[in-house]
Amino acid sequence: MSDSVISVKGLIKKYGAISAVNGISFSVKQGEIYGLLGPNGAGKTTTLECLEGLRRIDGGNIIVAGCNPQKDKKKIRNIMGVQLQSSSLPDGILVSEAMALVCAWHETKYRSDLLECFGIEGMVKKKYHQLSTGQQRRLHLALALVCNPSVVVLDEPTAGLDVEGRAQLHNEIRKLKKQNVTMLLATHDMAEAEGLCDQISIVIKGTVAVTGTPFEVTAASKRDTRIAIRTGRNSLSSNCKIEGATFFKEKDCYSIWTCSDSALAIGALMQRVKEANDFVIDLRVERPSLEESFLELVSGGEMK
């Protein structure tokens, strides 16, 4: 028996002659944060809308916590909490009214605890349009959790937030993970995906281009690793011949080298520093970032 809470197999969604989603497959285990990454128009939001039961699928199969969201729409709403990319409420609705409305829809008691959890309990008499973007996002997430869902879908949850707002929302997402909530996260923010997600799929033109942990995806990049090294006597220069390393540039007193085998390159650099009777002040190894790997795929480059 599969241990996947979310299972998507061969998903197809067409709009006329256009295939927005063309055979996407992935699975998410209990308590995982799974990221869907891709450029605009890649099919991420359409995939989520199919999974939420908001769009009729044209092929494939979706199961969420043992439920088919295409058929069991009433059941799925008590299994899944959703924060849509374009979540919005009427400008004039009070925070307390929004919470009461969603609680009534789920046939549950008023969740003042969620407002307190997200730091907006003091805003219950404020109208929606009076809230900051960050406060609105926290309200949307609170509303998505009214039914104590086992699965939460987050579509660009931190879009438009400042650094502090993103950090606060990320903390709330991590709290949900500690509670063993399964989350599916669609985002354009590579740092967000790298910091939060256990597994990711990069979607290009309606298909999955690569799947793995953020570490596995970056490790598969063809881009070289960079080694930045600062020494006391600046013995490393562009004229040095270092086995397994190629001089890249000098920056801020650092000599920067590229390599495909960092162990070989670091050993050769250390040997050169020792031979020059020099010493290392700082050494940094920078593997290709998730953003670089993403851009490599989007531009048509193939991963290893």
Rank of each mutant, 00 (worst) to 15 (best):
I12L: 12
Q168E: 12
I266A: 04
S87D: 07
I200S: 12
I93E: 06
E286Q: 10
L154P: 01
T182G: 15
V153L: 03
V217F: 06
V124H: 06
S235Q: 03
L54N: 05
V203P: 14
A17F: 11
L283H: 00
K177D: 05
K127G: 14
K205D: 12
I24W: 00
A100T: 10
S25Y: 07
C103F: 07
L176V: 08
A265P: 01
G35T: 07
A245P: 01
Y254T: 00
T182I: 11
M270Q: 09
Y128L: 07
E250Q: 10
A42V: 05
L48T: 01
R233D: 06
G41I: 07
Q179C: 11
S201K: 03
A219E: 13
T211M: 06
E194T: 05
A191T: 08
K125D: 11
E292F: 06
V152N: 13
K109M: 05
F248H: 04
V151G: 07
L143N: 05
V5T: 13
C259K: 00
V217T: 05
S7H: 10
K251N: 12
S260T: 12
D224T: 02
G232Q: 08
R55F: 04
V124G: 03
T108I: 15
Q168D: 10
T47A: 02
F279H: 07
E216V: 10
I256E: 00
Q83T: 12
L184T: 06
A220L: 15
I204P: 02
G38Q: 05
S201R: 03
D3S: 14
V153W: 00
G66Y: 09
C197S: 11
W105L: 15
K44C: 04
I227D: 00
C259M: 05
L143K: 07
T47E: 01
R230G: 00
E97H: 15
R174A: 11
T158F: 04
A142T: 09
V5D: 04
A219N: 11
K14E: 06
P90C: 09
G31R: 07
I281D: 04
V8N: 09
E192S: 11
I62R: 01
K222G: 09
E156C: 02
Q135P: 10
D252W: 00
I76M: 15
N68R: 11
V203H: 13
N22H: 11
P90I: 10
N234S: 14
E116M: 09
P214A: 01
V208S: 05
T46K: 10
T207P: 06
C253I: 01
K74E: 12
F294N: 01
T46I: 13
R226D: 00
A228N: 04
N61A: 07
D198P: 14
E291N: 13
G134D: 02
E32D: 13
S87Y: 13
